[in-house]
Amino acid sequence: MIFIILLVLLSALVVINIATGTVSLKPSEIISILSGGSDDSPYYTILYNIRLPRIAAAIVLGGALALSGYLLQTFFDNPIVGPFVLGVSSGAKLCVALIMIFFLSKGISLGSVAMIIAAFVGALTVMCFVLLISFKAKNMSILVVCGIMIGYICSAVTDLLVTFADDSNIVNLHNWSMGSLSGINWTQVLQMSVITFACLIVAFLLSKPMGAYRLGEAYARNMGVNITFLRIMLILSASMLAACVVAFAGPISFVGIAVPHLMRLSFKTSEPKVMVPASFIGGSVVTLLCDCLARNIFAPTEVSISSVTAVLLVPVVISMLLKRRKNSVKNA
């Protein structure tokens, strides 16, 4: 039932996002453009090449963030992990920084494609490190710590690089690291959709072992879950989703942490078969909302989406943490 509410919200937000913005579009114009008329209308470009791809990106990437967050929270049984806990975004940022500071400043022009690729490479490199560590780790907390440590190293190195950078590059990097959905085109939407939906399907197929995992690793193993396989698949899919987001939109924070909690509380269940699609859609809704706000609050200035998500979602996260009952006593 709640799904229906979500879907309704989603649709509503789509419409709002189409209509609002620096340039307001009248509903009648929207309908006529959508129904295939007047290609040469100036609103066509706005609608089709700017707003719709952006909306699509928000849906896809928002879902990816929330799903990644959900996967990692289940896996680590830790309510404050998010998609970037394993250092994925730090790695991406490092790589992007390298690109920006060294190549661009030397006059070598690299398109946004290069940035995307750089972000991916950085993210996936860190992911490989984490995977290697996960084979050796006896328990999960080690993995989290390692991820955070790697994040710190990458940040430290990035800061180091920044000292050699020009001011302009620093600003560029800074802007990049705030995350933004602007400037996304349909090709990119296609690319990110492929990756995201592939991971979505994988996550859904993992819902049975993830469900068993809720009882703890010992019981999961006893019931026949292949723990190692599960570990690898979770890390892979979560990291891919996170890498995808970082590559195309930069790090967008809090969505991955807050949305799974919201969904859990709304649906009142932790069953993965429900939570996987719920997180995804929830993530899409929240991101659309935040993006709408980011574009329109101080129009024509676009506020960084991460700021919006932080301001909006932090109170939510805090209240949730306070409400959370301290009743999981773990025995050795």
């Binding site: 068993a212 009882l215 773990k330």
Partner: peptide, 26 residues
Amino acid sequence: SRNIPELMSCREIVEMGRYPYTGMLG
């Protein structure tokens, strides 16, 4: 281990026992 998963009903816990017997989606 006294791991208490949240938001699971008792029935769901017991149903977990059928894990080895159910199909792909459980």
